[in-house]
Amino acid sequence: MTIETNLEKMERLTSKVWRSYNKEDPLGHLSFNEYDYLKAIQSSAEPIRLTDLAKELEVSKPSATNMVKRLERKGLVKRLSCTEDARSKRVTLTEKSRLPLASEAEIYSVVADKLRIHLNEQEFALLDTLLTKALR
């Protein structure tokens, strides 16, 4: 089997778990891009500067600004003044998006458990190591 086939199967497995464990997904109405922005903001240890968000997502700063405004109108993010640079803004999640995004960890735990069933402890650790290396 090819890596492409296996990646597709992984995506399908994850989709099945999402459908079965998250019937009332409060973020299900978002586009992929909106969701991607939320995940980038979530992964930042502190409120992220708009410039850094654009860089992280490999988009222009005006594109990032427009998306953040859209997400702000939906109540999913808020912009904060930057203490280091008055011209800059930082972006953080609101509770409306923070809670549903946090519950996703459970979904990925179920996916990991489904993979673990078919692997011994060493193989599972190796899979984790290889994915970590490949996804840097």
Rank of each mutant, 00 (worst) to 15 (best):
E34M: 09
G28M: 03
L99P: 01
N33H: 00
R12Y: 05
Q42S: 00
E123G: 09
M10N: 07
L127T: 13
A112D: 08
D36G: 00
S109I: 06
S97K: 14
C82S: 15
V17E: 02
G75K: 11
T5S: 12
K78Q: 10
K133Q: 13
M10F: 08
R98E: 15
R136M: 10
H118G: 08
K9A: 10
K89V: 15
D36V: 02
D25G: 00
R136G: 08
K55D: 05
L99H: 10
F32N: 03
S15W: 02
N120M: 06
L30S: 09
Y35T: 02
N22T: 07
M1P: 06
S15R: 09
S63A: 15
I3R: 12
I117W: 07
R136I: 10
L127P: 04
L27E: 03
T51N: 05
T5F: 04
R19V: 08
E8I: 01
Q42E: 07
K114V: 07
K16M: 06
L93K: 13
T2Y: 03
H29I: 06
E104S: 04
A112R: 09
E84K: 12
L131T: 10
L27S: 01
R19G: 07
S63G: 06
D36C: 00
E34K: 12
S20N: 10
L126G: 02
T94V: 11
L115E: 08
D52K: 04
L13K: 09
G28V: 02
K78L: 07
K96N: 10
L53Y: 05
K55V: 03
N6Q: 01
K39R: 11
F32T: 06
K23E: 13
S31E: 02
R98G: 05
A102K: 14
K96S: 12
K55Y: 02
A112W: 06
A54S: 09
T65L: 11
T51G: 01
L119G: 09
